[in-house]
Design a protein around this nucleic acid. Structure first.
Length: 515
RNA sequence: GGGCCUGUAGCUCAGCUAGGUAGAGCGUCUGGCUUUUAACCAGGUGGCCAAGGGUUCGAAUCCCUUCAGGCCCGCCA
């Protein structure tokens, strides 16, 4: 059984299931976070497929404060450290807030992946006073909570600690106001900024529950029954350990079912942390990877499995693997061992509907070549048709899919592809010195090319015949062609490559080169 | 110091929540194909399933211990 179905099988049928995921938009949201959302989405779908009444929600903790000036921020952001992300200006100026800046890009990505949770913003929940009873309860039970946290997490809290971070009315920070006295409904405080005042906890948005308390409070408030979380929360004495006890003892709520997921590493660069700048943002990841393939990467691996995302050659392999499983799914190929839970994995990899028949496939590596030869989609389509890679008449769905893949492969070529696979057809004949032998070879190639049918295998044979005729190593022949077309010694498989170019263009190039 | 995960063929991994004679891809080797960003076809090769112990008629699979690696926590969340 697929892991998502196993997890969903633990959910109770009698009650409504709320599958939750929560991420703090403190920076570009990365693929690691993406795993959380995709894991939740898979369980949500599995729950629905079991006939459960299920809802999928996403809580953006945008009322959390800015920890520090991250490497990707201008230094002027120093002044905002400690303020809620929802109250900090947007870095680009086009969004409502700092939080929204990162959030909107992420939510857009989610849509493309076929993930459509109900979105809650913590800042709104606080300001609209949804936390009121939980803040009240927490403050009434301060001693109990303190005991739980100190005992379970083995750390000691300061004497005047209360489970409430006050938002200083003057400087707007959540981190600098220290409580002096709590007497319902007021908390008196003094702030490092020099301000002294009091807040009325019956009013919304005057402060925030600290994370370890906020999390369980949120479970009850939204009725969360399932939530995946990263191993950082799962460490012993961590927020899950304290959270589940706080949920039961303080808020009288049964902690949600859960799954702990491993992080995704960027191959060769270590773990991705939005705060360390080693992240590839979710948006970038999606720009270079077709959405169904990105989903596939998560779905085929159990959450406990650590995953390396390789934005180099590995990406091509991943797409090939997906395409292969797709062919098997539709019966076009035999299943191989090691394709675990193939059918379910394939289905869960679809952002939206499962295709009704095998989509038209073009090998991704070939697409990477063609995309470098032809400019826009129309040209690429023409080339693919001429070389017989796609049928003359494309169905609408197939066309859209291929077009999208071209966009992804282009983005990849531009920013992530290893140098050795990129090339550019030179508009002008490169200035290179050709030996007499090479010139002779080109002459005979010119003749042969003009006589053959312009297709891969014939071109290939012509090159070989020509080099034999001139008693040249075939390698030299291939290199010569790459030199006059690309200005380099290597290139894509020549037969295919030339067949994607106009015959006239190639002949003319040869003519110019031998001059 | 604590937690989680991982350890199966040269490499990447599947199999482990139904315990029942070791699997795939890649590589390598052989043969074929007049060769190209990691080309294709056919066939062969390859493993004391990290080590030790236990449960069992039977263990890669379950339990315990040890070793090795990765990550996380031990500020805040």
């Amino acid at each position: 059984m697929h892991w998502a179905d196993v997890l969903a099988s633990h959910l109770e049928e009698e009650r409504k299931q709320v599958i939750a995921t929560g991420i703090t938009p403190s920076g570009p949201i990365h693929i690691g976070n993406m795993r959380e959302v995709l894991t939740a989405d898979a369980v949500y779908r599995a729950a629905k497929d079991r006939g459960l009444d299920a809802e999928f929600i996403y809580i953006a903790d945008d009322f959390d404060h800015l920890r520090k000036v991250y490497p990707f921020l201008p230094e002027t952001y120093e002044q905002y450290v400690g303020m809620p992300l929802s109250e900090i200006p947007c870095p680009c100026g086009e969004h409502k807030s700092y939080a929204d800046h990162y959030l909107s890009s992420f939510l857009h990505s989610l849509k493309e992946l076929g993930i459509n949770p109900k979105v809650y913003r913590a800042s709104k929940l606080y300001k609209e006073n949804k936390y009121r009873e939980y803040i009240h309860t927490a403050l009434e039970k301060t001693d109990e909570i303190r005991e739980i946290i100190e005992k379970v997490s083995k750390r000691s809290l300061s004497k005047n600690w209360i489970p409430f971070n006050i938002l200083c009315q003057k400087c707007g920070r959540l981190t600098t106001a220290k409580p002096v006295l709590y007497e319902y409904p007021y908390v008196e405080y003094t702030c490092e900024c020099g301000f002294e005042g009091e807040v009325d906890i019956r009013k919304g948005g005057v402060g925030k529950l600290p994370w370890r308390v906020d999390w369980p409070a949120r479970w009850k408030m939204l009725g969360v029954t399932f939530e995946p979380f990263g191993k950082d929360h799962a460490a012993s004495g961590g927020s899950w350990d304290t959270g589940k006890i706080i949920a039961e003892k303080i808020f009288d709520y049964k902690p949600p079912h859960n799954v702990v997921y491993e992080f995704i590493q960027l191959k060769g660069k270590g773990a991705m942390h939005s705060s360390k700048g080693t992240a590839v943002s979710a948006e970038e990841m999606l720009n270079m990877t077709p959405p169904e393939v990105l989903r596939f990467m998560i779905m085929k691996n159990k959450p406990s499995k650590h995953v390396d995302f390789d934005p180099g050659f590995g990406l091509l392999d991943l797409v090939d693997e997906y395409d292969e499983e797709e062919r098997v799914y539709f019966g076009a190929e035999e299943e191989k061992k090691g394709m675990k839970d193939l059918r379910r994995t394939y289905e869960l990899s679809q952002p939206y509907n499962v295709p009704s028949e095998l989509p038209v496939q073009v090998p991704y590596k070939h697409l990477a070549t063609v995309a470098q030869i032809a400019g826009n989609w129309e040209d690429i389509k023409t080339v693919l048709k001429r070389t017989g890679q796609i049928p003359d008449v494309l169905k609408k769905g197939d066309e859209e899919r291929l077009k999208k893949r071209v966009e992804h492969v282009k983005y990849w070529l531009r920013y992530f592809a290893p140098k050795r696979i990129t090339f550019k057809v030179q508009k002008k004949t490169p200035k290179i010195m050709l030996s007499d032998e090479q010139k002779k070879l080109l002459h005979s190639l010119q003749k042969r090319f003009s006589e053959i049918k312009w297709q891969a295998d014939e071109i290939h044979n012509a090159v070989y015949d020509a080099s034999e005729e001139n008693r040249l190593n075939a390698k030299t022949a291939f290199q010569t062609m790459y030199q006059i077309l690309l200005g380099q010694n290597h290139g894509p498989r020549l037969g295919y490559f030339l067949s994607t170019l106009e015959k006239e263009f190639v002949l003319k190039r040869i003519e110019e080169a031998v001059k």
